[in-house]
């Protein structure tokens, strides 16, 4: 029996290593899932006299997309966001993370603005409070103001159709 022990341990190891090949060791799950979204009050990107505050959005399901003009993969996901905005399913808010106001505004002019409004988070404090570590990130917040889902990295049409939209419909359908 004890001569077979090394083989048994090794086989278990191999199984885990094989599973490991399918995982991404760098993806960090958000501890905010199922928790109330952190509060903030940020000046809007387009008009610094207005403030964006998620508390005012309570009662509606909404998306918060973290983006920046310096972020390369934000360009990649931008068409998906524009398409989503056009379909008018769910309000999309932006969190403009560690950016400069003029370049951010120019970026939206150039590529189109899918956001109802974007909060301007110049020093990245709000981003940190939301646990942002890799722009772009997208949060789904329900009617109670609870974060239900977080997508780290660019949204693709597949992720949108297969994960986000079904969840959003379910959240919108459930009674408050």
């Amino acid at each position: 029996m004890r001569y077979r022990l090394p083989l048994a341990v090794f086989l278990i190891l191999i199984i885990f290593l094989a599973i490991g090949l399918t995982l991404d060791p760098r993806e960090v799950p958000s501890p905010f899932i199922g928790k109330p979204a952190p509060e903030f009050a940020l000046p809007e990107l387009a008009d610094s006299t207005k403030t964006l505050n998620p508390r005012e959005l309570k009662g509606r399901v909404f998306l918060l997309n973290v983006w920046a003009s310096w972020c390369v993969s934000c360009r990649q996901e931008h068409p998906v966001l524009l398409d989503l905005a056009k379909r008018n399913i769910v309000p999309l808010y932006g969190l403009n993370y560690k950016d400069e106001r003029t370049s951010a505004q120019r970026w939206l002019e150039q590529f189109g603005d899918p956001y109802v409004a974007s909060g301007f988070d110049a020093d990245g404090r709000v981003g940190i409070n939301w646990g942002v570590y890799g722009v772009p990130e997208t949060f789904v917040v329900d009617r109670e103001g609870v974060i239900r889902y977080k997508q780290t990295g660019p949204l693709t049409p597949e992720i949108l159709e297969n994960k986000l939209l079904p969840l959003i419909r379910q959240l919108q359908g459930s009674p408050t």
């Binding site: 001569y3 090394p6 083989l7 086989l11 191999i14 090949l21």
Partner: peptide, 27 residues
Amino acid sequence: PKRGLFILMLLAIVVGGSLLLYALRAP
């Protein structure tokens, strides 16, 4: 991932084989 899978298979054959041999012969 292709490389990872290949080395994993190599690992399984070399190490698994030798530990199997050990399990059979060591007693």
